[in-house]
Amino acid sequence: MKFARFIAASLLAGTLAMPAASYAADKPVVGLVMKSLANEFFKNMLEGAKAHEAKRGDYTLKAVGMQSETDVETQINAIESFITQKVDAIVVAPSDSRALVPPIKRAVDAGITVVNFDVALDDKAKQEAGLKLAFVGPDNREGAKLAGDALAKKLGAGAKVVIIEGNPGADNAAQRKLGFMDSVTAGKLDLLDSRTAHWETEEANTVFSNMLTAHPDIQGVMAANDSMVLGVVKAIEAAGKTGKIEVVGFDNIPAVQPLLKEKKLLATVDQFGQQMAANAIDKALGVVAGGKPLEGWVKTDIKLVTSDDVK
């Protein structure tokens, strides 16, 4: 796998480096560094950005995605080749909140406007590198708390719940877990177990089935994304406990819409991913055009989605 990524990263770096001089001189060039385009969420986000480019028409978009969620090298290589290409702005959704700090610092030092969106860079790592950078993105912790609170409200105090976490080490996974924990505390829920299923459907199905065996009295599940919700709901069905266990998720992907409708999923959270990259690009172009530099955390919209929102 490692080797496969290395090859993929080298190929990608090669294709990026070549057409360096071919941009029209008048339009600003924005380099967009995305996470895994194999993930529907980021693929939609990229499509949103492309539509945005066509609509505005006053900038050139150059987008790069990764092979998988954890493919950090590709992102680093992409940023470095954007520096070489002297783009005007880089808009980046970091796959790792620490590993991306040094290359981003080099970009800022090279006079490029950088906007960090989707996942915030680590504050301590930024400080150590002497990097000052604003973050444009949703509050994952707040979003997870919205979902967790919906679960707590439905089940009441003392309800026995478990958490299915995202990738250990990923910032949004950590933030979502913190948000769920906030709900556990606020709603006086009884947290029985919390485990990772690495964002994946099959693993969530396996892990949750086993948790249910260990704790047959589980009443509620908080899953850090909707792909894992699919596996959890299937495990509940297989155990014959449909309607006895409430589930909340995150991301509001198309595949969970039927589950919301059938009330097999209590709630999920929409963070309007499609517009997220486009918004960040707007912010970056504002600065390139001579606007005020961004500061702190520019929060973007989040919304709790329940069966009431599905026709």
């Binding site: 796998m1 194999a38 993930n39 998988s68 994946e200 459907t201 099959e202 199905n205 792909s227 699919l230 596996g231 299937k234 595949a255």
Partner: peptide, 19 residues
């Protein structure tokens, strides 16, 4: 069998199954 068990098909399933 995967589809029968989980009722979805997606291009990101099966990562690491070979190992």
């Amino acid at each position: 069998i995967y589809m029968a068990r989980l009722n979805i098909a997606s291009p990101i399933i099966g990562i690491g199954f070979e190992l």
